[in-house]
Amino acid sequence: MASAERPLSPHLQIYKPQISSVLSILHRITGAALGIGLLLLAWWLIAAAAGPDAFATVQGFIGSWLGRLILLGFTWALFYHLLNGIRHLGWDLLWGLDLPTMTKTGWAVVIGSGVLTILAWIVAYAMKG
């Protein structure tokens, strides 16, 4: 329990956003979002097992514009968390911890997650026909 009289470290909002800090909090935000995405996946699987009516309800929701928008968000969150997670595992092995490499891998994650999201949606629409 922190005492009210104690000096606090400078608040987050006075710092200029940097790639290190922005990508760090995005990892946590996408992680939490994917937790909700996991619920959608569970709903889809359970509905498929439950039968045609329940399955039609989920498919109807996923196919709606709102469902597609949510799914687009989950797609990006998944690829972001996947790529940035690999970056984190690299750091665990003491790889890429220096600032120039950290900046480079950070931008690679940003660009890579965007590219993979667009690719996945192009493939999805192509497969659907």
Partner: peptide, 27 residues
Amino acid sequence: AVGLIPLVILFVIYLLGLVGADLATVK
């Protein structure tokens, strides 16, 4: 996390083939 890397990639590939699929195809 390490386990999820290949699993997510494989599962996304399966899901891409199931976009708009009916229940019989999913099964």
